[in-house]
């Protein structure tokens, strides 16, 4: 796919309003992911982070606003159609197919692809990229540790050869050792040309590897900017823990 001519934005959300039943989750939210970047969406509990990812993947339909991927409107499309356009997903809590083997999980990631030889090539590449996954390849995915499952979830998403990979809290519940490993891998994936959109609660971790960050607070983007600036901004702390002045 040629990138020439189109603007720098691979993914663009504009004016998104979503509802969970009668409760409004997003209020006219705007967000962009540039080609080749890692963008993180930060925020505390119940800020609407995960719903943002569901909007991109077509699992939640916004009541207003559009989602554009690679210049095309994908707002109304079904999830399989969106996946087929080149978006990969690492869902919250990984959501592996626990009763299937690791190998089957990886190949499920290539479900929309028909180029069998290339799939096999990618499969071997994943085993190289994730040696820990290779060791457990014939185990049931449900028997793996949390960190191993995260690796499988990432490899599974990459098997679809996505241009954009969406990750929901990739470091949640992992031991510090795995957290670092996962972050390294995200950076490595990005170096190979895959853009990354990542939803995280853990701001300091995410901003280490991201190029750009957004902070969501109760459905509104409260802060955004280059990752380095954001990490130094004292307001990010207020966005999570509440402002100093109100804590009288």
């Amino acid at each position: 796919m040629s990138e020439g001519g189109s603007r720098g934005d691979l993914l663009e959300l504009s004016g998104i309003d979503t509802f969970y039943g009668p409760a409004q989750v997003h209020f006219a939210m705007n967000l962009e992911v540039r080609r080749g970047q890692i963008v993180c969406l930060l925020g505390g509990n119940a800020s609407g982070k995960s719903t943002t990812m569901k909007v991109i993947l077509g699992l939640v339909k916004p009541r207003a606003g559009t989602v554009r991927f690679d210049g095309q409107d994908i707002t109304g499309l079904s999830t399989p159609a969106i996946i087929a356009r080149g978006i990969g997903s690492v869902p919250e809590a990984r959501r592996l197919f626990g009763a299937m083997t690791v190998r089957e999980n990886l190949l499920m990631g290539a479900y929309t692809r028909r180029d069998r030889a290339e799939v096999n090539h990618d499969y071997d590449r994943m085993l190289g990229l994730f040696p820990r996954v290779a060791q457990r390849i014939n185990n049931r995915a449900g028997t793996l540790s949390g960190g191993e499952q995260q690796m499988v979830a990432m490899a599974r998403a990459l098997m679809g050869r996505p241009r954009l990979i969406c990750m929901d809290e990739p470091t949640m519940g992992l031991s510090p050792l795995y957290v670092d490993r996962v972050l390294e891998l995200i950076a490595a994936i990005n170096k190979e040309g895959v853009s990354v959109f990542m939803v995280e609660q853990n701001a300091s971790l995410a901003l280490q590897i991201a190029h750009h960050g957004y902070v969501l607070r109760t459905g509104v983007i409260a802060l955004s900017g280059p990752a380095g600036e954001l990490a130094r901004d004292p307001r990010i702390r207020d966005a999570y823990l509440g402002g100093e002045r109100t804590a009288a």
């Binding site: 505390g44 510090p176 609660q201 853990n202 701001a203 300091s204 280490q208 990490a231 901004d233 004292p234």
Partner: peptide, 17 residues
Amino acid sequence: YLGHRHMGGEQTPDAVA
């Protein structure tokens, strides 16, 4: 809430970098 390294101005920019 924020991660295992301090955030939000409680750390020098150099350290973050």
